[in-house]
């Protein structure tokens, strides 16, 4: 059964049509690649999925329930998490706090209980810290837990973004150019990590990526966007040979 259905999704900014009539269907546990030249509308798809933009028309269904009109925080609670192409960590807060914040939707203590420091509050804070540290441990960030997020290296910041997304407890994880700025070795590690994440957390993953090697290696199915239209869809081998994709990336063949 499809976990995510995007039906004729259209987004218009002023006079610019960023997406027109996009259809995407993602099955549970799939690992989907979303590729296309710069400005094709890939990040716009993510921004519509997470409610940061409102769709001009079309429908998005998560587990058969429409997401239209929901605020980003409500969509997070439905089980979609994402990372950002331009890293958006809470820079002036510690690594640990960055992760603890992501557990927000699971917090039960009321504001009054927090102010009065009732026993339930302290217990929950301890559990929260333990869970956050456990997740940081998996991503080899435990040693950095007290550092401010802005003081992490670029690779560590990308990893922390993934940790934070996982902490929200998603079913569907959206990764926006996770390998940007990484060297080949780091990219290789990322491939392993993404595969492992899917198994460990039972996730469905959509990733936007420019690194073709990574997409072809990792994704089972690929959607190609160009000028806001889905121009091709299928397995990596099919996509590689598709003339429309070659044309979008390399331009018209000289005749």
């Amino acid at each position: 059964m499809a976990i995510l259905e995007i039906k004729s999704l259209t987004k218009v900014f002023g006079g610019l049509t960023a997406l027109s009539g996009v259809n995407i269907e993602v099955g549970e546990g799939e690992l989907i690649g979303l590729i296309g030249p710069n400005g094709a509308g890939k990040t716009t798809v993510f921004n519509l999925l997470t409610g940061i933009y409102a769709a001009t028309s079309g429908e998005i269904l998560l587990n058969g329930r429409p997401l239209n009109g929901l605020k980003p925080y409500q969509i997070t609670r439905r089980g979609i998490a994402r990372t950002f192409q331009n890293i958006r960590l809470f820079n002036e807060l510690s690594v640990l706090d960055n992760v603890r914040i992501a557990y927000h939707r699971h917090v039960k203590s009321s504001m009054l209980a927090s102010v009065l420091r009732l026993p339930g509050f302290s217990r929950e804070e301890r559990e929260l810290k333990a869970k956050a540290l456990e997740l940081l441990e998996i991503f080899h960030l435990t040693g950095r837990k007290d550092q401010l997020a802005r003081n992490l290296s670029y690779g560590e910041q990308r990893r922390l973004e993934i940790v934070r997304a996982l902490a929200t407890g998603p079913q569907l994880l959206l990764l926006d150019e996770p390998a940007a700025g990484m060297n080949p070795q780091e990219t290789n590690e990322l491939v392993q990590l993404v595969r492992w994440l899917r198994e460990r957390f039972g996730l469905t993953i959509i990733l936007i990526e420019h690194d073709m090697g990574l997409v072809m290696q990792l994704c089972e199915r690929i959607y190609v966007l160009d000028y806001g239209l889905v121009i091709a869809e299928g397995a990596p081998e099919t996509i590689k040979r598709d003339p429309r994709v070659i044309q979008a990336y390399l331009g018209e063949e000289a005749s």
Binding site: T50, I52, K71, P72, Y73, T76, R77, A81, R82, F84, R88, L89, F90, N91, E92, L93, I101, A102, H104, R105, R164, T168
Partner: peptide, 11 residues
């Protein structure tokens, strides 16, 4: 720190 990121974290 970052309103959009905060919102995406379910806040």
């Amino acid at each position: 720190e970052d309103e959009i990121a905060a919102e995406t974290m379910g806040i």
